[in-house]
Design a protein around this nucleic acid. Sequence first.
DNA 1: CTGAAAGCGCTTACAG
DNA 2: CTGAAAGCGCTTACAG
Lengths: 355, 355
Amino acid sequence: MSMNSAQAKRVTVSDIAAGCGVSRATVSLVLRESPLVHADTRARVQAEIVRQGYVYHRGAASLRRGTSNAVALVLNDLSNPFFAEFAGGVDAVLAEAGYVMLLGSTGESPQRQQAVLASLIEHDPAALILSPAEHSEPARLQRLLGTRMPVLVFNRALGDDEPGDGWDFLALDNRNGARMATEHLLAQGHRAIAFFGGHRDSSSCSERRAGYRDALAAAGIEPDPQWLVECAPTRLEATRQTGALFARDPAPTAAVCYNDAVALGLIGGLAARGRQAGRDFAVVGFDDIPEAAVSTPPLSTIAVAPRERGMQAARLILARLRGDSDLPRRIVAPVQLRVRASSVVAPTLSNGASA
Amino acid sequence: MSMNSAQAKRVTVSDIAAGCGVSRATVSLVLRESPLVHADTRARVQAEIVRQGYVYHRGAASLRRGTSNAVALVLNDLSNPFFAEFAGGVDAVLAEAGYVMLLGSTGESPQRQQAVLASLIEHDPAALILSPAEHSEPARLQRLLGTRMPVLVFNRALGDDEPGDGWDFLALDNRNGARMATEHLLAQGHRAIAFFGGHRDSSSCSERRAGYRDALAAAGIEPDPQWLVECAPTRLEATRQTGALFARDPAPTAAVCYNDAVALGLIGGLAARGRQAGRDFAVVGFDDIPEAAVSTPPLSTIAVAPRERGMQAARLILARLRGDSDLPRRIVAPVQLRVRASSVVAPTLSNGASA
DNA sequence: CTGAAAGCGCTTACAG
DNA sequence: CTGAAAGCGCTTACAG
């Protein structure tokens, strides 16, 4: 005998049936809450179920019935609060609906993504919610996942040919969010507005840049190349790259940042150069992470409500599983501008203080 | 026909067997990488598997073999970065070992915990890692989970009678961490040191308070009741409660905080009263959340390495599943003091500045 | 309302 | 090395 867990033999429907003198079919009907069973019989069976500590084996039932009540969720990175919140929202809705969540994460690696998905689909999930790793290959994914399972792609488009393959798509309105952020800065009189951070080849960054350009174009402004500064989407890199904004005169007086991490890094970088966000320079972030509300100064940003997105994704996939008709294939979730102190500063003030 | 996903019939071992003229048993042996199959046959079968897009049905295999390669993880709250990081660590190790993770969250509610666990165990996980909700009832949990499955309790003890029930237990060394934090403040000359935040009846808070008392006692100091301030473990509440520290003279000159959120809230509360952490008052947190390194001033804290704890938990439970002998039943994970600017200030300076 | 029988997709002795 | 048969725990027509 190993040190393994106690090996008490599993209690099955047969044990319950034998224990109270009915057939296995009757026990099954009681388990599935069928009205066909006499109330007395049902009570007897239920008592026996409690007495013997029976645990329903949903895998066996799913096998027989050809159904599944698991949904797979595959994310890039759980330690990113955006995805953690999203997963929390998915979980809340799935649990409410009696589903169970199979979770995997890819660390932004397409290879790991293939491996993780291959492992998860062997557990026969009813559906998949996938936030794809950067540089995923849609064709490989399609081959792996087949067409038996509804798939909802979250956050990042898989390729230009979407959504011809019948997968659902839920994304943030990156373009509109960046446009709103830029318009907010324009409304305060800024004309030289940078777009700071992110990598141009990521889809969310290029969408946000597009919204930024939209707003500038509507105001008749052509962005100076110096205003477009790339950097890894981390606080540290943003602090390091701050100098690039001020390499030549006239420097921008405000920046729309790729995300809040970058914005907070920029605020630090500004401080190191003797400038203060919200007094000498206007900063807007993107995401509304918890820290944004309590940083110094509080950070203006675009709220994306990741938990609500998770709930929305789960509801959509459940509706797809029910076979609801008229479901949208593509949802672009609205985002919201939250104005805080970091962006409430006019450009003249900024020029004066930074001279 | 509903709008549901394409209903292509499932490909099974029988289809593969028929497709290349062997028996189902042979296909099964190929799937399980048995050396009993001739290399040519194996190649033929594998080609057919690819050709037909066969997906292994692990549920059916588990049913037949009486095994499972899923591990359930039940947490209080995914949106808490501590638990999200922990889950990431668990996932990394499980995926590496070919296991799949079933995730549920309880929102600190014992009722939801019972429901979530009941739903998850129907999926026959091989093991469970549980971070119990506050006020869990060990007896009810025990009844629900039975003894068939190894269980690892993380982070919070379930009751004083543990671990008589054969469950594993992994916790942070809360007591020692708080002791180190307190000793660090003592070493700089502080004598009037508060323990700020948390609720006395939570086990982690009472352990941390015990460590704090240990250090004070070793220095011959009896804590003044005014030094023990309770508050909800959030930044906002901590800011609100800051005044309680200074209700009477002499006020403390330093504080060990229940966690980093509380410590950051305290720093804000101090600022609102014209005091600056790291100049007029010394603050130490607990957790080392990412924000601690970049707050103003950077926060001294006790690093608990949640991702590493997750990896450790997963490794332990996998070893238990393998039936390794000599596994410890109770692990108290070491924590580490990280000194940053918020605590590097001597008490005399503090008194001077706050007069 | 209840029971006997077949079958979901897989694996595993047991013969050959 | 391969094949026929039984069985994991459940559900579902089909008779009674």
